[in-house]
Computed example of a mutant assay.
Amino acid sequence: MTATATDDAARPAAHVTRARPRPIAAWLWFVAAMVVVMVIVGGITRLTESGLSITEWKPVTGAIPPLSEVDWMAEFERYKQIPEYRNVTGPAGMTLEDFKFIFFWEWFHRLWGRLIGVAFALPLAWFWLRGAIPQGYKPRLVALLALGGLQGAFGWFMVRSGLSGQMTDVSHFWLSIHLLTALFTLGGLVWTALDLRRLADIPDARPARFNRVSMVVALVLFLQLLLGAWVAGLNAGLASDTWPLMQGRFIPEYDTTRGFWWAAAHDPFLIHFLHRWWAWVTVAALVWLGRRLRPFDRRASIAIHSAFGIQILLGIATVVTGVDLWIAVAHQAVGAILVAVTAWGMHVLGRKV
């Protein structure tokens, strides 16, 4: 055999050895943790009514906050032009210091989003140029990057929905799109990291598949997350501070003038009711998933049961405390963690197909 033939035969092996699934998986876990922090900061931004404090979208220059009193006054004046200030915060006597507080949370929320973009794009380029990405994973990683870009765009559409007309808050539909895109991205990061971690241990391992059990559980969980996002967007958590009854009855009074389905998407009382009781359907689905997992990975089953148990308790506590800020933030944070561990459990089942 000639030297050239020997070199040609060696190339595939050399190419395989350049792939680095383990460090790529670690990187994706880090980005997933950043997304969980983003969900937490987004919850604080929403609960402190900070989301409309920045009225312009400047993807690059917006990373720099106001640096002088003149700059602060200019930002405050722009905020004073929107309906939220004219109808809600202005009449309540908002001061410049109050404005600085809400501005910080919206600015930090946007800044953290930019940092996630950098933390994903730069390592992705480095791994790509080094030939470290295993075969078949480049399209998935590019798709995750695109989801991050969409997340930023959806966030601006959400903000813009609250800046015009007589709106004093963002559209709960846009808020749900914004939040659910973040949670879907989180699930994708976790799933891909698990695929790569397994590939590092088993060189010929195939990606896990999304089976029928996972599909059913995902649909049930999706509906619960959607209802939760609508509760947040409509401030429907304030519709009742008692549990399990609302207004002293099991089913609360709600607007029936335009039919059930309109009310199910717009009426805070009905949406709150649906969210608190669909939670138990979600629990049943997650218990089913957990039981299917036990023979394969007991840790994933325990993680899912722990997450939904804590989530239920935090949900009830959020209601009875009249939406206490930090309890409500914890509820949203555990919701993101629940998505991550559910993706873990689904991945375990997907390996067995």
Rank of each mutant, 00 (worst) to 15 (best):
Q135K: 15
G62L: 03
R114K: 11
S171D: 04
I116W: 01
E75I: 03
S161K: 08
G136E: 05
A125M: 12
A92M: 14
R160Y: 13
S164P: 14
D169C: 08
G62P: 07
P66G: 07
K100C: 09
P59G: 05
H172G: 04
E84A: 10
V159Q: 02
L96I: 12
F76P: 02
G149R: 05
L163V: 08
W107T: 00
R114N: 06
D169N: 12
F127M: 06
R86P: 11
G93Y: 09
Q135W: 15
R160I: 14
Y85P: 03
G43E: 01
G165L: 09
L111K: 07
Q151H: 12
P139V: 10
E106A: 02
M94C: 08
F127R: 03
M73L: 15
L141G: 06
T61N: 14
I133N: 01
L67G: 10
A119P: 01
T89K: 11
A132W: 13
A121I: 13
S164N: 15
R46Q: 00
M167Y: 15
G90L: 02
T48P: 06
Y137N: 07
V170I: 08
W105K: 02
N87P: 14
W72R: 05
Y137C: 09
W174A: 03
M167K: 12
E56Q: 13
G90E: 02
P65G: 04
R140C: 13
F104P: 01
H109S: 04
E106R: 01
L163I: 01
Q81P: 11
L52K: 04
A143H: 08
E56T: 14
L145Q: 12
E106K: 00
R46T: 00
S68W: 10
T55Q: 08
P134G: 07
G62E: 05
I82N: 07
F108P: 03
I44H: 06
G149N: 06
T89W: 09
L122T: 11
Y79A: 09
I116H: 03
F127K: 06
L145A: 12
V118H: 07
G165H: 08
L144K: 01
P59C: 10
K138V: 13
V118C: 04
G148L: 05
Q166W: 15
G149F: 05
L163W: 02
W105R: 00
T45M: 00
E84I: 00
E69I: 12
M158D: 03
M158F: 04
M94P: 06
K100M: 13
M73E: 15
W156V: 03
H109V: 04
R140L: 15
G162W: 02
V159T: 08
L67T: 08
A132I: 08
E56Y: 14
E56C: 14
K138A: 14
W72N: 09
I116K: 00
I133S: 03
